[in-house]
Design a protein around this nucleic acid. Structure first.
Lengths: 346, 346
DNA sequence: CTGTTAGCGCGTTCAC
DNA sequence: GTGAACGCGCTAACAG
């Protein structure tokens, strides 16, 4: 059945050679207007369609890019991917999705697999695992395949990245809590080998210090981004003899867990304890007690990552100019941290 | 720099032929254990990696499948894609993502584009547009490329599909509202050219009729899945002289809009008006006033879609046996429709 | 067991 | 302007 028609088929029908067909189809200048039209017409007639695979093999460009994320079914990553696809599609690229489930072995496997598939570049957020191997990244660089980190990055020479200013986002969130009168602010952190979490920690710490408050390391807790974990550590925190009056979390999910636990203890938010999360996941807005959070403009982040890739792809020969794009975070103040309603202007 | 090493490179180094290398690498039975080991070792040594593109051109299998969705940054579609990727990755397939933004021209373009990329199959949810062309689907069938619809499907001979029993989901949701004592139940519908919306409408209608309630067509409103649209139509509904006492919406987003609008009018949920949505988006659970909804088990739907594809891909020669998988929906009862707290068992 | 040849579909030299 | 020949990297068919 559906045998695909090639340029040879149409060449044969027209008693010309495949090369001529190829030239006509690609708008080569030195071809007679007559045969060009003839070729184009019969091509359409025979439902000819270019086999991009053959083109890719020949040219070395597959027009596929790989996108590697921990998982796709979270609003942040799905939105970044949306941005990437929106930007790359008009440029003729396809987006191949891979998930690491935060396992480094899968991260390595995915990179190899994409490499074998001859992708023209890889855009990724690194997995949250403690291993310290950069070999798989170096391999990409050696092969000259553009690599762009978004959000979760490592500092590697020659690798571009697109992130938000996590330090600033954390600093502003913490400052906001301090402005609301909070004095003992806990910080729910995560694996600080990953720069975004390290920077959020540093921003938090700096704001505490700049405001002359006491920095208490016991209020910094490392956890993973799950509601249940948020509940767990909050329960522990509330059992302290001197519990915090605010929580700044690097994750909206742990922030949500915190809120659930705080309520379960009969405490009031934000009066007794204020809460600010990070990522501006959709649910933070929809909740009756909406959660303050730091927006990372994920779609924008995706678009820009794609643009950085396109630049590198087009400058292939030139010096590998690593580019570090830093977007500005936006603190969204909502019910969970707004004690004085007077301040609201919207 | 990073020139990729081919089987010719390693053949040259070993003074054998490329074919032998290929055989050795692929575990061909008739090859001496000695040269096999030799080849494998030097392959590793030279960092050889198979070029899947050449393989694809030769074999006609790209080990890429296309997934087309209206948009990726919604929990439902992201979760389906997660399920697809989880299932296809271990089988060596890559997943290429395309978005239609609910525009049929983009749907057609994406199919053509994926076809040119020689994908081994396409899994998709059709776009919500009113056009009636099936040509692009027929084209796939003619070319023998497996096509699988998930969720938003059309009935086309030869095309498999994976959906939930939308009729049942809608029927149960409506029955639940009736059980709660509701008598005038509005239905927020959508483009009923798409079967899932048609079937939800039919399930709703049947439940009304089976319970001997009056079926009022003016309570059926067609809209699109946006919060703001939910607010709009709810405002109109509340202005009726005989407003409804319940709303069953095919979308969680319009359900959310409805809730916002109902509250803005000072009415109580679920006492004055009960609300049930559809899809079980995450925010429905997290809200203080949680929203009842019908779960579609999207990850499972993705996994099964992938399995159906795998079956078809492996039975390529046999009769095109279209397979219609129908999953069972699950009604999740939450605050927005539960008047009698006594009934709660969880 | 291994070498030779050929072809997947395309674009691109180099001639004419 | 167009044809002939070649190569991208790989595997399968046919030798031997």
């Amino acid at each position: 059945m559906g045998k695909k028609t090639t340029i040879y088929d149409i060449a044969e029908k027209l008693n010309i050679t495949a090369a001529t067909v190829s030239r006509a189809l690609n708008g080569n200048s030195k071809i007679s207007e007559k045969t060009r039209k003839l070729v184009n017409d019969t091509a359409k007639e025979m439902n000819y369609e270019q086999n991009k695979l053959a083109l890719a093999l020949k040219s070395g460009k597959s027009f596929n890019v790989g996108v590697i994320v921990p998982r796709i079914d979270t609003n942040f990553f799905a939105s970044v991917i949306r941005g990437i696809e929106d930007e790359l599609h008009p440029n003729g690229y396809h987006v191949i999705i891979c998930q690491t489930h935060d396992q480094e072995n899968l991260e390595i496997e995915n990179i190899n697999s994409l490499l074998n598939a001859q992708v023209d570049g890889i855009l990724m957020s690194i997995s949250n695992s403690k291993l310290e191997t950069n070999q798989h990244f170096q391999k990409l660089l050696k092969k000259g395949v553009p690599l762009i980190f978004f959000d979760r990055k490592k500092d590697i020479a020659g690798v571009s990245s697109v992130t938000i200013d996590d330090f600033k986002g954390a600093y502003e969130a913490t400052q906001h809590l301090i402005d609301q009168g909070c004095k003992r602010i806990a910080h729910y952190s995560s694996n600080r080998d990953i720069l975004i979490f390290k920077n959020r920690y540093l921003g938090y710490k700096q704001a505490i210090i700049d405001n002359g408050l006491e920095f208490d390391e016991t209020l910094v807790i490392e956890t993973i981004s799950k509601i249940i974990e948020g509940r767990k550590i909050t329960k522990q925190l509330l059992a302290m003899k001197n519990p915090p009056d605010a929580i700044f979390s690097v994750s909206d999910f742990t922030a949500l867990g915190a809120i659930e636990e705080i309520k379960a203890h009969g405490l009031k938010i934000p009066e007794d304890i204020s809460v600010v999360g990070f990522s501006n996941e959709p649910f933070t807005r929809f909740m009756e007690l909406s959660i303050s959070s730091v927006d990372q403009s994920p779609i924008e982040m995706g678009r820009i990552s794609a643009q950085v890739f396109l630049e590198e792809a087009n400058n292939s020969k030139k010096i590998k100019s690593e580019k570090q794009v830093v977007l500005s975070p936006e603190l969204i103040i909502r019910d969970s941290s707004l004690k004085s309603k007077v301040l609201v202007d919207n």
